[in-house]
Simulated assay, not measured.
Amino acid sequence: MALLHGHVFETPVQAYAPVRVLSCAALSSRKVIETPIQCSTGSFYKFFKKQASMLPSVCGAVVQTIGLADGNRSWVNTVGSRKVIEILAADSCADTAEKFKYVVEAVDDRARKITYKLLEGSLLQSYDSFTVTLQVTSGSTAKWTVEYVKKDLSSGDPDFYLDLFRTINATVDIYLRSNDY
């Protein structure tokens, strides 16, 4: 690990930085998962921006349901749009699901980047905040960045969810290539 300025430490997959003064232990953490994709990067980004409603049919083993929330009428991810998603549960041995409500915080079409913030769900029992960003790079990779603030040091890292993103990336990539997107 290399010491940067302030109390910030960086590794290839995580960065730790003090956020606000709740206690000396309050830390913001960041984890990244990048996977190569073979389909068109534009198609991959478009799928998550405009066709997220297809996730249960494309990735049914991971995403059970997805729905519009709080009066939203469009599936297009725009700033402020809200959705509810049910995904494979982290603590499950069976086919149980966790339900989360999220809001789209930012959309950058030029950078092919969408940022989602968790509003409701079991993860907020362990984390004060939980934000996920998808960026589809021109280097044919899909990169998910998870930023979170642990409620206390005993809260684990959300590695299970990064593994789900890896599975989603591979499944969506195969679907888009198989269907000539």
Rank of each mutant, 00 (worst) to 15 (best):
residue 164 L to I: 08
residue 8 V to N: 05
residue 51 Q to G: 06
residue 124 L to A: 05
residue 152 D to N: 14
residue 176 L to F: 11
residue 168 I to Y: 04
residue 4 L to M: 14
residue 151 K to W: 06
residue 153 L to Y: 02
residue 64 Q to G: 11
residue 73 R to G: 12
residue 91 D to Q: 11
residue 59 C to G: 07
residue 84 V to D: 05
residue 76 V to K: 09
residue 60 G to C: 08
residue 136 V to W: 01
residue 166 R to S: 15
residue 133 T to A: 13
residue 135 Q to R: 10
residue 139 G to N: 15
residue 130 F to S: 00
residue 18 P to F: 07
residue 103 V to Y: 00
residue 118 L to T: 06
residue 27 L to W: 04
residue 103 V to N: 04
residue 136 V to Q: 01
residue 120 E to D: 13
residue 171 T to R: 05
residue 76 V to C: 07
residue 172 V to L: 03
residue 16 Y to Q: 12
residue 32 V to D: 11
residue 118 L to P: 02
residue 173 D to T: 00
residue 97 A to P: 00
residue 29 S to G: 12
residue 152 D to S: 15
residue 66 I to R: 03
residue 142 A to D: 08
residue 53 S to E: 15
residue 137 T to M: 08
residue 16 Y to G: 10
residue 22 L to E: 14
residue 47 F to N: 02
residue 144 W to S: 11
residue 137 T to Q: 08
residue 70 D to W: 08
residue 176 L to R: 03
residue 126 S to F: 06
residue 3 L to Y: 11
residue 137 T to F: 03
residue 59 C to P: 02
residue 92 S to E: 13
residue 129 S to R: 10
residue 56 P to G: 07
residue 76 V to F: 02
residue 30 R to C: 00
residue 125 Q to G: 12
residue 174 I to L: 07
residue 50 K to T: 06
residue 142 A to C: 08
residue 147 E to V: 12
residue 44 F to A: 04
residue 171 T to W: 01
residue 4 L to K: 09
residue 172 V to C: 02
residue 163 D to L: 13
residue 29 S to L: 14
residue 155 S to R: 03
residue 150 K to Q: 09
residue 29 S to A: 14
residue 36 P to D: 09
residue 51 Q to N: 14
residue 133 T to H: 03
residue 138 S to C: 06
residue 155 S to P: 07
